[in-house]
Design a protein around this nucleic acid. Structure first.
Lengths: 236, 236
DNA sequence: AGGCAAAATTGGTCGGACCAATTCAGAGCG
DNA sequence: CGCTCTGAATTGGTCCGACCAATTTTGCCT
Protein backbone atom coordinates (compact mmCIF):
# COMPACT_ATOMS: atom_id res chain seq x y z
CA UNK A 1 0.00 0.00 0.00
CA UNK A 2 1.57 3.22 -1.15
CA UNK A 3 1.64 5.96 1.44
CA UNK A 4 1.42 9.37 -0.13
CA UNK A 5 3.21 12.39 1.28
CA UNK A 6 -0.14 13.98 2.06
CA UNK A 7 -1.06 10.88 4.05
CA UNK A 8 2.18 11.05 6.01
CA UNK A 9 1.61 14.70 6.78
CA UNK A 10 -1.96 14.01 7.86
CA UNK A 11 -0.88 11.18 10.15
CA UNK A 12 1.89 13.27 11.61
CA UNK A 13 -0.50 16.07 12.44
CA UNK A 14 -3.05 13.65 13.86
CA UNK A 15 -0.38 12.16 16.08
CA UNK A 16 0.59 15.58 17.37
CA UNK A 17 -3.01 16.35 18.14
CA UNK A 18 -3.36 13.07 19.99
CA UNK A 19 -0.29 13.22 22.15
CA UNK A 20 -0.90 16.80 23.15
CA UNK A 21 2.00 18.22 21.18
CA UNK A 22 -0.56 20.66 19.83
CA UNK A 23 -3.05 21.19 22.68
CA UNK A 24 -6.54 22.56 22.26
CA UNK A 25 -6.55 26.15 21.09
CA UNK A 26 -2.87 26.06 20.20
CA UNK A 27 -1.56 27.65 17.04
CA UNK A 28 0.36 25.48 14.64
CA UNK A 29 3.66 26.67 13.20
CA UNK A 30 3.35 28.64 9.98
CA UNK A 31 2.61 26.53 6.93
CA UNK A 32 5.94 27.31 5.34
CA UNK A 33 7.86 26.25 8.44
CA UNK A 34 5.67 23.24 9.21
CA UNK A 35 5.95 22.01 5.64
CA UNK A 36 9.72 22.04 5.84
CA UNK A 37 9.61 20.37 9.24
CA UNK A 38 7.46 17.54 7.91
CA UNK A 39 9.49 17.26 4.75
CA UNK A 40 6.67 18.02 2.32
CA UNK A 41 5.82 20.94 0.08
CA UNK A 42 3.52 23.66 1.30
CA UNK A 43 0.80 22.64 -1.12
CA UNK A 44 0.83 19.07 0.18
CA UNK A 45 0.80 20.30 3.76
CA UNK A 46 -2.20 22.44 2.92
CA UNK A 47 -4.05 19.40 1.58
CA UNK A 48 -3.44 17.59 4.86
CA UNK A 49 -4.66 20.62 6.79
CA UNK A 50 -7.81 20.78 4.66
CA UNK A 51 -8.54 17.16 5.47
CA UNK A 52 -8.27 17.74 9.19
CA UNK A 53 -10.17 21.00 8.92
CA UNK A 54 -12.98 19.16 7.11
CA UNK A 55 -13.15 16.84 10.11
CA UNK A 56 -13.37 19.80 12.42
CA UNK A 57 -10.03 19.23 14.13
CA UNK A 58 -8.30 22.33 12.77
CA UNK A 59 -9.45 25.81 11.84
CA UNK A 60 -7.60 28.31 9.70
CA UNK A 61 -7.63 32.08 10.02
CA UNK A 62 -6.15 34.14 7.22
CA UNK A 63 -3.24 36.26 8.26
CA UNK A 64 -3.24 34.66 11.67
CA UNK A 65 -2.56 30.95 11.53
CA UNK A 66 -3.92 27.43 11.85
CA UNK A 67 -5.48 26.59 15.20
CA UNK A 68 -6.49 23.43 17.02
CA UNK A 69 -10.22 23.39 17.64
CA UNK A 70 -11.95 22.16 20.76
CA UNK A 71 -13.64 19.43 18.76
CA UNK A 72 -11.44 16.60 19.95
CA UNK A 73 -11.71 17.85 23.46
CA UNK A 74 -15.36 18.67 23.02
CA UNK A 75 -16.98 18.06 26.35
CA UNK A 76 -13.52 17.49 27.72
CA UNK A 77 -11.44 20.57 28.27
CA UNK A 78 -13.94 23.39 28.01
CA UNK A 79 -16.66 22.21 30.37
CA UNK A 80 -14.04 21.07 32.85
CA UNK A 81 -12.49 24.47 32.98
CA UNK A 82 -15.80 26.00 33.95
CA UNK A 83 -16.70 23.25 36.36
CA UNK A 84 -13.31 23.50 37.99
CA UNK A 85 -13.81 27.19 38.59
CA UNK A 86 -17.30 26.76 40.00
CA UNK A 87 -16.83 23.56 41.96
CA UNK A 88 -13.56 23.68 43.86
CA UNK A 89 -14.11 20.20 45.28
CA UNK A 90 -13.36 18.90 41.79
CA UNK A 91 -9.82 20.01 42.42
CA UNK A 92 -9.25 17.13 44.82
CA UNK A 93 -10.73 14.70 42.30
CA UNK A 94 -8.40 16.11 39.71
CA UNK A 95 -5.45 15.81 42.04
CA UNK A 96 -6.28 12.23 42.82
CA UNK A 97 -6.60 11.52 39.12
CA UNK A 98 -3.26 13.17 38.48
CA UNK A 99 -1.68 10.97 41.13
CA UNK A 100 -2.84 7.88 39.27
CA UNK A 101 -2.11 9.12 35.77
CA UNK A 102 1.21 10.82 36.37
CA UNK A 103 2.36 7.97 38.59
CA UNK A 104 1.78 5.57 35.73
CA UNK A 105 3.36 8.01 33.28
CA UNK A 106 6.51 8.22 35.38
CA UNK A 107 6.62 4.45 35.59
CA UNK A 108 6.29 4.00 31.84
CA UNK A 109 8.76 6.80 31.20
CA UNK A 110 11.36 5.00 33.30
CA UNK A 111 10.72 1.89 31.23
CA UNK A 112 10.54 3.35 27.76
CA UNK A 113 12.28 6.71 27.58
CA UNK A 114 14.35 6.86 24.42
CA UNK A 115 17.73 8.47 24.21
CA UNK A 116 16.08 11.56 22.74
CA UNK A 117 13.56 11.60 25.59
CA UNK A 118 16.32 11.47 28.16
CA UNK A 119 18.14 14.29 26.40
CA UNK A 120 14.98 16.38 26.51
CA UNK A 121 14.39 15.59 30.16
CA UNK A 122 17.98 16.42 30.98
CA UNK A 123 17.59 19.75 29.23
CA UNK A 124 14.46 20.61 31.20
CA UNK A 125 15.92 19.51 34.52
CA UNK A 126 19.00 21.64 33.83
CA UNK A 127 16.91 24.68 33.11
CA UNK A 128 14.90 23.91 36.21
CA UNK A 129 18.08 23.75 38.24
CA UNK A 130 19.18 27.11 36.89
CA UNK A 131 15.81 28.67 37.64
CA UNK A 132 16.00 27.32 41.18
CA UNK A 133 19.50 28.70 41.65
CA UNK A 134 18.43 32.13 40.38
CA UNK A 135 15.23 31.91 42.40
CA UNK A 136 13.27 32.73 39.22
CA UNK A 137 9.76 31.91 40.35
CA UNK A 138 7.98 32.55 37.05
CA UNK A 139 10.42 30.35 35.21
CA UNK A 140 10.06 27.63 37.83
CA UNK A 141 6.30 27.54 37.45
CA UNK A 142 6.60 27.36 33.68
CA UNK A 143 9.27 24.67 33.69
CA UNK A 144 7.28 22.69 36.23
CA UNK A 145 4.57 22.29 33.63
CA UNK A 146 7.07 21.52 30.90
CA UNK A 147 8.72 18.92 33.11
CA UNK A 148 5.54 16.98 33.73
CA UNK A 149 4.64 17.22 30.06
CA UNK A 150 8.04 15.86 29.06
CA UNK A 151 7.62 12.89 31.37
CA UNK A 152 4.21 12.17 29.89
CA UNK A 153 5.71 12.36 26.41
CA UNK A 154 8.47 9.92 27.40
CA UNK A 155 5.81 7.44 28.50
CA UNK A 156 5.11 6.79 24.81
CA UNK A 157 1.36 6.50 25.18
CA UNK A 158 -0.78 8.98 23.30
CA UNK A 159 -3.48 8.96 25.95
CA UNK A 160 -1.08 10.02 28.66
CA UNK A 161 0.41 12.78 26.57
CA UNK A 162 -2.98 13.94 25.46
CA UNK A 163 -4.51 14.11 28.89
CA UNK A 164 -1.40 15.69 30.37
CA UNK A 165 -1.32 18.38 27.69
CA UNK A 166 -5.00 19.18 27.92
CA UNK A 167 -6.73 18.22 31.16
CA UNK A 168 -3.85 18.33 33.58
CA UNK A 169 -2.19 21.40 32.16
CA UNK A 170 -5.54 23.09 32.67
CA UNK A 171 -5.62 21.97 36.28
CA UNK A 172 -2.12 23.25 36.80
CA UNK A 173 -3.19 26.55 35.29
CA UNK A 174 -6.14 26.59 37.63
CA UNK A 175 -3.87 26.16 40.63
CA UNK A 176 -1.49 28.85 39.45
CA UNK A 177 -4.32 31.30 38.97
CA UNK A 178 -6.23 30.64 42.15
CA UNK A 179 -3.57 29.72 44.65
CA UNK A 180 -0.75 31.99 43.58
CA UNK A 181 1.20 29.00 42.34
CA UNK A 182 1.56 26.80 45.36
CA UNK A 183 3.25 29.63 47.23
CA UNK A 184 6.32 29.08 45.18
CA UNK A 185 7.62 32.16 46.90
CA UNK A 186 8.31 30.15 49.99
CA UNK A 187 11.94 29.13 49.63
CA UNK A 188 11.47 25.88 51.52
CA UNK A 189 8.60 24.83 49.26
CA UNK A 190 10.45 25.74 46.10
CA UNK A 191 13.46 23.78 47.29
CA UNK A 192 11.33 20.76 48.18
CA UNK A 193 9.67 20.78 44.77
CA UNK A 194 13.06 20.95 43.10
CA UNK A 195 14.30 18.01 45.15
CA UNK A 196 11.24 16.00 44.12
CA UNK A 197 11.63 16.85 40.47
CA UNK A 198 15.28 15.91 40.56
CA UNK A 199 14.48 12.66 42.34
CA UNK A 200 12.08 11.90 39.50
CA UNK A 201 14.81 12.55 36.98
CA UNK A 202 17.20 10.21 38.76
CA UNK A 203 14.60 7.45 38.93
CA UNK A 204 13.77 7.75 35.24
CA UNK A 205 17.38 8.06 34.15
CA UNK A 206 18.19 5.07 36.36
CA UNK A 207 15.45 3.04 34.65
CA UNK A 208 13.71 2.34 37.92
CA UNK A 209 9.96 2.27 37.13
CA UNK A 210 8.75 1.47 40.64
CA UNK A 211 10.84 4.19 42.19
CA UNK A 212 9.75 6.67 39.53
CA UNK A 213 6.11 5.90 40.21
CA UNK A 214 6.48 6.14 43.98
CA UNK A 215 8.47 9.35 43.70
CA UNK A 216 5.70 10.84 41.59
CA UNK A 217 3.15 9.67 44.15
CA UNK A 218 5.10 11.42 46.87
CA UNK A 219 5.38 14.54 44.74
CA UNK A 220 1.65 14.75 44.13
CA UNK A 221 0.96 14.01 47.79
CA UNK A 222 3.26 16.88 48.74
CA UNK A 223 1.41 19.22 46.40
CA UNK A 224 -1.91 18.07 47.77
CA UNK A 225 -0.76 18.66 51.32
CA UNK A 226 0.49 22.13 50.44
CA UNK A 227 -2.78 23.04 48.77
CA UNK A 228 -4.70 21.73 51.76
CA UNK A 229 -2.65 23.72 54.24
CA UNK A 230 -2.98 26.83 52.11
CA UNK A 231 -6.72 26.40 51.96
CA UNK A 232 -6.85 25.88 55.71
CA UNK A 233 -4.91 29.06 56.27
CA UNK A 234 -7.64 31.04 54.51
CA UNK A 235 -10.16 29.98 57.13
CA UNK A 236 -8.20 29.57 60.34
CA UNK B 1 -18.05 37.04 5.24
CA UNK B 2 -15.53 36.29 2.55
CA UNK B 3 -16.10 33.06 0.68
CA UNK B 4 -12.81 31.55 -0.39
CA UNK B 5 -12.36 29.94 -3.77
CA UNK B 6 -11.78 26.59 -2.09
CA UNK B 7 -15.12 27.00 -0.33
CA UNK B 8 -16.89 27.73 -3.58
CA UNK B 9 -15.33 24.70 -5.22
CA UNK B 10 -16.30 22.52 -2.26
CA UNK B 11 -19.88 23.77 -2.35
CA UNK B 12 -20.09 23.25 -6.08
CA UNK B 13 -18.90 19.66 -5.81
CA UNK B 14 -21.22 19.00 -2.88
CA UNK B 15 -24.14 20.29 -4.93
CA UNK B 16 -23.26 18.04 -7.84
CA UNK B 17 -23.04 15.07 -5.51
CA UNK B 18 -26.41 15.88 -4.00
CA UNK B 19 -28.36 16.51 -7.19
CA UNK B 20 -27.08 13.36 -8.79
CA UNK B 21 -24.93 15.11 -11.35
CA UNK B 22 -22.18 12.82 -10.11
CA UNK B 23 -23.92 9.58 -9.10
CA UNK B 24 -22.38 7.06 -6.74
CA UNK B 25 -19.44 5.32 -8.38
CA UNK B 26 -19.14 7.92 -11.10
CA UNK B 27 -15.80 9.32 -12.15
CA UNK B 28 -15.30 13.05 -11.93
CA UNK B 29 -13.73 14.99 -14.79
CA UNK B 30 -9.97 15.23 -14.68
CA UNK B 31 -8.66 17.72 -12.13
CA UNK B 32 -7.23 19.99 -14.79
CA UNK B 33 -10.52 20.16 -16.69
CA UNK B 34 -12.69 20.39 -13.58
CA UNK B 35 -10.56 23.17 -12.18
CA UNK B 36 -11.03 25.24 -15.30
CA UNK B 37 -14.74 24.46 -15.33
CA UNK B 38 -15.13 25.69 -11.75
CA UNK B 39 -12.94 28.69 -12.37
CA UNK B 40 -10.28 27.82 -9.79
CA UNK B 41 -6.71 26.65 -9.98
CA UNK B 42 -5.92 22.98 -9.84
CA UNK B 43 -4.29 23.35 -6.42
CA UNK B 44 -7.42 24.90 -4.98
CA UNK B 45 -9.60 22.24 -6.57
CA UNK B 46 -7.40 19.60 -5.01
CA UNK B 47 -7.92 21.13 -1.57
CA UNK B 48 -11.66 20.95 -2.06
CA UNK B 49 -11.36 17.32 -3.15
CA UNK B 50 -9.28 16.50 -0.07
CA UNK B 51 -11.96 17.96 2.16
CA UNK B 52 -14.66 15.81 0.60
CA UNK B 53 -12.36 12.79 0.59
CA UNK B 54 -11.76 13.30 4.32
CA UNK B 55 -15.51 13.14 4.77
CA UNK B 56 -15.65 9.92 2.82
CA UNK B 57 -17.57 11.31 -0.13
CA UNK B 58 -14.81 11.02 -2.71
CA UNK B 59 -11.94 8.64 -3.31
CA UNK B 60 -8.92 9.23 -5.54
CA UNK B 61 -7.02 6.65 -7.56
CA UNK B 62 -3.71 7.70 -9.03
CA UNK B 63 -3.56 7.55 -12.76
CA UNK B 64 -7.23 6.76 -12.93
CA UNK B 65 -9.37 9.55 -11.51
CA UNK B 66 -11.54 10.81 -8.68
CA UNK B 67 -14.58 8.70 -7.90
CA UNK B 68 -17.79 9.16 -5.96
CA UNK B 69 -17.88 6.63 -3.14
CA UNK B 70 -20.83 4.45 -2.27
CA UNK B 71 -21.37 6.27 0.96
CA UNK B 72 -23.38 3.58 2.67
CA UNK B 73 -21.33 4.00 5.79
CA UNK B 74 -22.97 6.49 8.08
CA UNK B 75 -21.99 7.60 11.54
CA UNK B 76 -18.35 7.76 12.47
CA UNK B 77 -19.03 11.35 13.37
CA UNK B 78 -16.91 11.48 16.49
CA UNK B 79 -13.37 12.59 15.72
CA UNK B 80 -12.12 10.16 18.33
CA UNK B 81 -13.83 7.32 16.57
CA UNK B 82 -12.17 8.11 13.29
CA UNK B 83 -8.75 8.54 14.84
CA UNK B 84 -9.19 5.22 16.62
CA UNK B 85 -10.06 3.59 13.32
CA UNK B 86 -7.09 5.06 11.46
CA UNK B 87 -4.44 4.79 14.17
CA UNK B 88 -4.46 1.16 15.29
CA UNK B 89 -1.61 1.73 17.72
CA UNK B 90 -3.99 4.01 19.58
CA UNK B 91 -5.95 0.93 20.54
CA UNK B 92 -3.09 -0.51 22.54
CA UNK B 93 -2.41 2.89 24.09
CA UNK B 94 -6.04 3.08 25.04
CA UNK B 95 -5.95 -0.40 26.51
CA UNK B 96 -2.89 0.41 28.56
CA UNK B 97 -4.57 3.57 29.75
CA UNK B 98 -7.68 1.63 30.68
CA UNK B 99 -5.56 -0.74 32.72
CA UNK B 100 -4.23 2.14 34.78
CA UNK B 101 -7.48 4.04 35.06
CA UNK B 102 -9.85 1.16 35.66
CA UNK B 103 -7.41 -0.47 38.04
CA UNK B 104 -7.40 2.67 40.15
CA UNK B 105 -11.17 2.96 39.81
CA UNK B 106 -11.64 -0.57 41.11
CA UNK B 107 -9.31 0.17 43.99
CA UNK B 108 -11.15 3.34 44.97
CA UNK B 109 -14.49 1.64 44.51
CA UNK B 110 -13.49 -1.03 46.99
CA UNK B 111 -12.56 1.72 49.44
CA UNK B 112 -15.45 4.08 49.00
CA UNK B 113 -18.46 2.31 47.54
CA UNK B 114 -21.55 3.44 49.40
CA UNK B 115 -24.41 1.15 50.30
CA UNK B 116 -26.28 2.47 47.27
CA UNK B 117 -23.26 1.80 45.05
CA UNK B 118 -23.06 -1.77 46.29
CA UNK B 119 -26.76 -2.24 45.65
CA UNK B 120 -26.32 -0.97 42.10
CA UNK B 121 -23.32 -3.19 41.51
CA UNK B 122 -25.19 -6.18 42.91
CA UNK B 123 -28.04 -5.45 40.53
CA UNK B 124 -25.73 -5.33 37.53
CA UNK B 125 -23.81 -8.43 38.50
CA UNK B 126 -27.09 -10.30 38.94
CA UNK B 127 -28.27 -9.31 35.51
CA UNK B 128 -24.88 -10.26 34.15
CA UNK B 129 -25.18 -13.66 35.81
CA UNK B 130 -28.59 -14.16 34.24
CA UNK B 131 -27.32 -13.12 30.79
CA UNK B 132 -24.45 -15.59 31.15
CA UNK B 133 -26.81 -18.37 32.17
CA UNK B 134 -29.07 -17.66 29.17
CA UNK B 135 -26.05 -17.24 26.93
CA UNK B 136 -27.46 -13.88 25.79
CA UNK B 137 -24.45 -12.44 24.02
CA UNK B 138 -25.92 -9.04 23.15
CA UNK B 139 -27.01 -8.52 26.73
CA UNK B 140 -23.60 -9.57 27.99
CA UNK B 141 -21.81 -7.02 25.84
CA UNK B 142 -24.15 -4.29 26.99
CA UNK B 143 -23.94 -5.17 30.66
CA UNK B 144 -20.16 -5.41 30.40
CA UNK B 145 -20.10 -1.72 29.62
CA UNK B 146 -22.62 -0.93 32.34
CA UNK B 147 -20.58 -2.90 34.84
CA UNK B 148 -17.39 -0.99 34.24
CA UNK B 149 -19.30 2.26 34.33
CA UNK B 150 -20.85 1.35 37.65
CA UNK B 151 -17.45 0.61 39.14
CA UNK B 152 -16.14 3.97 37.93
CA UNK B 153 -19.16 5.65 39.48
CA UNK B 154 -18.52 3.88 42.78
CA UNK B 155 -14.99 5.27 42.83
CA UNK B 156 -16.48 8.66 43.68
CA UNK B 157 -14.15 10.69 41.53
CA UNK B 158 -15.71 12.72 38.72
CA UNK B 159 -12.68 12.32 36.52
CA UNK B 160 -12.93 8.55 36.58
CA UNK B 161 -16.64 8.58 35.94
CA UNK B 162 -16.34 11.06 33.14
CA UNK B 163 -13.50 9.37 31.30
CA UNK B 164 -15.14 5.98 31.70
CA UNK B 165 -18.42 7.27 30.31
CA UNK B 166 -16.85 9.01 27.33
CA UNK B 167 -13.44 7.86 26.20
CA UNK B 168 -13.44 4.30 27.42
CA UNK B 169 -17.01 3.53 26.50
CA UNK B 170 -16.13 4.56 22.97
CA UNK B 171 -13.07 2.32 23.00
CA UNK B 172 -15.24 -0.56 24.13
CA UNK B 173 -17.62 0.21 21.28
CA UNK B 174 -14.70 0.30 18.88
CA UNK B 175 -13.64 -3.16 19.96
CA UNK B 176 -17.18 -4.49 19.67
CA UNK B 177 -17.52 -3.13 16.15
CA UNK B 178 -14.16 -4.17 14.77
CA UNK B 179 -13.40 -7.39 16.56
CA UNK B 180 -16.87 -8.91 16.70
CA UNK B 181 -16.96 -8.27 20.40
CA UNK B 182 -13.96 -10.12 21.71
CA UNK B 183 -15.40 -13.31 20.27
CA UNK B 184 -17.96 -13.34 22.98
CA UNK B 185 -19.46 -16.20 21.05
CA UNK B 186 -16.72 -18.43 22.34
CA UNK B 187 -18.23 -20.04 25.41
CA UNK B 188 -14.91 -20.37 27.20
CA UNK B 189 -14.15 -16.68 26.72
CA UNK B 190 -17.59 -15.58 27.85
CA UNK B 191 -17.28 -17.78 30.93
CA UNK B 192 -13.81 -16.41 31.73
CA UNK B 193 -15.06 -12.84 31.44
CA UNK B 194 -17.93 -13.63 33.75
CA UNK B 195 -15.58 -15.15 36.30
CA UNK B 196 -13.41 -12.03 36.18
CA UNK B 197 -16.35 -9.71 36.58
CA UNK B 198 -17.63 -11.72 39.49
CA UNK B 199 -14.19 -11.73 41.11
CA UNK B 200 -14.22 -7.95 40.82
CA UNK B 201 -17.56 -7.84 42.55
CA UNK B 202 -16.31 -9.99 45.40
CA UNK B 203 -13.21 -7.87 45.88
CA UNK B 204 -15.21 -4.64 45.95
CA UNK B 205 -17.92 -6.06 48.18
CA UNK B 206 -15.22 -7.45 50.46
CA UNK B 207 -13.63 -4.00 50.69
CA UNK B 208 -10.30 -5.25 49.43
CA UNK B 209 -8.80 -2.41 47.34
CA UNK B 210 -5.56 -4.16 46.42
CA UNK B 211 -7.33 -7.29 45.31
CA UNK B 212 -9.87 -5.24 43.36
CA UNK B 213 -7.11 -3.41 41.55
CA UNK B 214 -5.13 -6.54 40.76
CA UNK B 215 -8.26 -8.33 39.61
CA UNK B 216 -9.00 -5.48 37.25
CA UNK B 217 -5.42 -5.59 36.00
CA UNK B 218 -5.82 -9.29 35.28
CA UNK B 219 -9.12 -8.64 33.55
CA UNK B 220 -7.68 -6.00 31.23
CA UNK B 221 -4.64 -8.18 30.57
CA UNK B 222 -6.96 -11.01 29.60
CA UNK B 223 -8.82 -8.73 27.20
CA UNK B 224 -5.56 -7.50 25.73
CA UNK B 225 -4.30 -11.03 25.24
CA UNK B 226 -7.56 -12.02 23.55
CA UNK B 227 -7.40 -9.06 21.18
CA UNK B 228 -3.78 -9.81 20.38
CA UNK B 229 -4.49 -13.46 19.61
CA UNK B 230 -7.45 -12.46 17.46
CA UNK B 231 -5.29 -10.04 15.54
CA UNK B 232 -2.60 -12.68 15.11
CA UNK B 233 -5.14 -15.09 13.72
CA UNK B 234 -5.79 -12.75 10.81
CA UNK B 235 -2.20 -13.09 9.60
CA UNK B 236 -1.14 -16.62 10.47
C1' DA C 1 -8.10 -11.01 -33.50
C1' DG C 2 -4.77 -10.73 -30.21
C1' DG C 3 -0.76 -9.34 -27.76
C1' DC C 4 2.26 -5.72 -26.56
C1' DA C 5 4.82 -1.54 -26.30
C1' DA C 6 4.61 3.42 -26.92
C1' DA C 7 1.91 7.50 -26.11
C1' DA C 8 -1.55 10.05 -23.74
C1' DT C 9 -4.03 10.78 -19.52
C1' DT C 10 -4.38 11.41 -14.64
C1' DG C 11 -3.54 12.12 -9.79
C1' DG C 12 0.60 13.39 -6.65
C1' DT C 13 4.21 16.52 -5.56
C1' DC C 14 7.14 20.39 -5.78
C1' DG C 15 8.84 25.29 -6.09
C1' DG C 16 8.05 29.92 -6.80
C1' DA C 17 5.25 33.90 -6.91
C1' DC C 18 1.72 37.32 -5.63
C1' DC C 19 -2.32 38.97 -2.88
C1' DA C 20 -5.07 40.23 1.19
C1' DA C 21 -5.86 39.79 6.01
C1' DT C 22 -3.65 39.97 10.31
C1' DT C 23 -0.21 40.84 13.61
C1' DC C 24 3.65 43.20 15.45
C1' DA C 25 6.99 46.79 16.51
C1' DG C 26 8.32 51.31 16.63
C1' DA C 27 7.49 56.21 15.95
C1' DG C 28 4.95 59.88 17.48
C1' DC C 29 1.75 62.31 20.40
C1' DG C 30 -0.72 63.65 24.59
C1' DC D 1 4.54 56.98 31.06
C1' DG D 2 0.80 55.34 28.34
C1' DC D 3 -1.85 55.52 24.28
C1' DT D 4 -2.62 55.68 19.23
C1' DC D 5 -1.40 55.28 14.69
C1' DT D 6 1.33 53.69 10.92
C1' DG D 7 4.39 50.86 8.18
C1' DA D 8 6.84 46.48 7.99
C1' DA D 9 6.75 41.62 8.73
C1' DT D 10 4.09 37.50 9.00
C1' DT D 11 0.57 34.32 7.49
C1' DG D 12 -3.06 31.91 5.05
C1' DG D 13 -5.22 31.86 0.16
C1' DT D 14 -4.54 31.40 -4.62
C1' DC D 15 -2.43 30.72 -8.95
C1' DC D 16 1.01 28.98 -12.34
C1' DG D 17 4.20 25.85 -14.40
C1' DA D 18 6.69 21.81 -14.20
C1' DC D 19 7.92 16.95 -13.40
C1' DC D 20 6.96 12.17 -11.77
C1' DA D 21 4.65 7.66 -11.40
C1' DA D 22 0.63 4.98 -11.94
C1' DT D 23 -2.91 4.01 -15.14
C1' DT D 24 -5.35 3.99 -19.30
C1' DT D 25 -5.65 4.35 -24.13
C1' DT D 26 -3.87 3.95 -28.60
C1' DG D 27 -1.98 1.79 -32.44
C1' DC D 28 1.34 -1.08 -34.45
C1' DC D 29 2.89 -5.66 -35.46
C1' DT D 30 2.32 -10.62 -35.42
Amino acid sequence: MPVSAADRATRALEARLLDGHYPAGARLPAERALAEELGVSRGTLREAIQRLAARGLLATRVGSGVYVTERLHGGLASPWRQLLAEHPHLGSDMLEFRRVLEGAAAQFAAERASRADLATLRGVIDRLRRARRDDDEAQEVLLDSVWHGSIAAAAHNSMFGYLQANLLAMHREHIAHNQAGLRYGDRAVAEALWQQHFALWEAIRGRDPDRARDTMYAHIDFVRARLASDAARVVP
